[in-house]
């Protein structure tokens, strides 16, 4: 059974230190209130997997010292530029960075969904991404003739954490068209979700919502968090708070500015609701 918890802070308290945590990109809803709660509880030694890339949530966790390792295709604040705490952490070697490419993450998670040890992937050969990954192999296509192809080991995250518009009391989560969240839930050992609202009707019983719904089977725990993706957006509910993100991008350029941001916007709970 899916645990229905009281708050994003309870979700963050359920996520252990030291795990491999898969996080969504900014175009799928991000569980920002739970991410802030991870910072509040001083989460340690997290290894982050960006599926396939991320931005603000990763920068916040890295800057707050919660992270030792990052595997992702990119960390970016989009039009607001480089993610400043990530950039500094790589330059100062505070985190181990494992560069990859978007489809390699999708494929390695699909291997995990299927319970397979690896997945082959086209492309990549000749890229420094492969040259610098000792966990990947270039092997022969067993059905081909002199056809090298990259083998990627399956990625099985210990947990995934994301936000969604809606859950029901049975633990089903409606994600609509954002099906990378479905893959993340399938592939991870545990899935933690915050939602805008929890409804009493079964989302799987309605043919309109069922195809865009992750069955509660995969969901470890969920909690209601109104505006839980803020300052990022939720499609059709609220948009990104671009002014706030600009403010963050400016503050986070320095360690002092970042610390002041955390003190004002994270440490004492959210003030945006």
């Amino acid at each position: 059974m899916t645990d229905i918890l009281k708050s994003a802070d309870e979700i963050a308290a359920s996520i252990p230190d030291g795990i491999l945590l898969a996080l969504p990109p900014e175009y799928a809803p991000c569980a920002m209130e739970a991410v802030r709660a991870l910072v509040r509880r001083n989460a340690k030694d997290l290894r982050l997997l960006g599926v396939p890339q991320f931005g603000f949530q990763a920068d916040l966790l890295i800057g707050a010292g919660c992270v030792t390792e990052v595997e992702t295709a990119a960390v970016t604040l989009g039009e607001l530029g480089l993610a400043p705490r990530f950039t500094d952490a790589v330059k100062l070697q505070k985190i181990a960075m494992r560069d990859t490419t978007c489809p390699a993450i999708h494929a390695a998670l699909q291997a995990s969904e299927k319970g397979l040890p690896f997945m082959p992937l086209r492309g990549l050969i000749g890229s420094d991404i492969v040259a610098r990954r000792d966990d990947w192999q270039i092997a022969d296509n067993p059905f081909g003739d002199n056809d090298p192809i990259v083998y990627l080991p399956a990625i099985r995250p210990d947990a995934t954490l994301f936000h969604a518009a809606k859950a029901d009391i049975y633990g089903n989560i409606w994600i609509g068209v954002r099906r990378e969240l479905m893959v993340m839930a399938h592939a991870s050992a545990a899935a933690y979700v915050t939602v805008e609202e929890i409804v009493e009707t079964d989302l799987l019983a309605d043919p309109q919502t069922a195809p865009g719904t992750i069955p509660g089977l995969y969901i470890t725990a969920l909690a209601k968090a109104r505006k839980g993706a803020w300052p990022l957006g939720v499609p059709d509910l609220y948009e990104r708070d671009q002014e706030h993100l600009k403010h963050y991008a400016e503050k986070a350029r320095s360690v002092e500015g970042f610390d002041a941001y955390i003190e004002q916007w994270v440490r004492h709970g959210s003030q945006h609701a």
Binding site: T76, T101, A104
Partner: peptide, 15 residues
């Protein structure tokens, strides 16, 4: 200098 990362380039450039 560190930039965001390779995104999907290492795949799409081939395909």
């Amino acid at each position: 200098a560190r930039f965001p990362g390779s995104f999907g380039s290492a795949y799409l450039y081939f395909l």
